[in-house]
Amino acid sequence: MYEFLIAPFVDYVFLQRALAGSIMLCLSSGPVGVFLMLRRMSLTGDALAHGILPGAAVAFLFFGLDLAPMTLGGLIAGLLLALLAGAVSRLTLQKEDASLAAFYLISLSAGVLIVSMHGSNIDLMHILFGTVLALNDQALMLIAGIFVLSTVGLALFWRGLVAECLDPLFFRSVSRLGTPIHFAFLFLVVLNLVGGFQALGTLLSVGLMMLPAASARFWVNRVGPMCALAVAFGMVSSVAGLLLSYHAALPTGPAIILFCGAIYALSILGAPRGILLTHLRRTRPHRAA
């Protein structure tokens, strides 16, 4: 048991780093994912994750596989996408989801094209699927910084986010903070995706954000506990994914996300708000009043 579960993390520094990095990512992106889901913006996370790619790719073009420029490039591209989509939805009749979809499709194609112009397929795989087993000090520091910034930001905006999700018209009638909070929140989303991009790549970083959040929704009915549960689900998946990829020599990023997916599937079926308990039980216990 010890051999299987604990020893790898004790023996190998690269696994310790991977564990530290992914746990910080869970802590910071789990709650962000919960709010994305509650704001019915789950696919926005996906679109923004793709939007990061061309920025990272352009940086790759000039600096090679170097963390700092690629992170910065990704951050700029992601924010640009969020602002563009927001602007299009406010200035034209098109809704934000449609413009996001349009821009991320363009971004993704541009990104893949740029990387393949100057890199190999292996480079492309690195960028798309990450290298959680090769996190250096620089990358860990970046993830830690993003974790702190994201947590503080979310704590500051918490009540505003809740108010705006719950009753947007009311919130607009008592406060002008709605739009600033919306964009600050999108900034946090992009920040977390950029943080996850080094470890899990652009495609999978959104998985660690959305899947634990979507799973947690089936278990609890309060925002706080939902965030805590999403973080816990993410951590369990990270540990399990790292172990699986170590023992079976499988790619780590997808292994972690597949564990997230397994938890999601179990939640759909067996959670208090899942299918089995809400639909298949013929008579449900109920209170007299």
Binding site: L166, D167, L169, R222, V223, M226
Partner: peptide, 26 residues
């Protein structure tokens, strides 16, 4: 219809929004 009734909030959370003008964001 403007309210998201599926949002995981208690009656307390909804009603306490009325104090927003007094208490604000923080």
């Amino acid at each position: 219809a403007e309210i998201d009734r599926s949002f995981p909030a208690r009656v307390f959370d909804l009603v306490s929004l009325g104090l927003w003008p007094k208490r604000g964001l923080l």
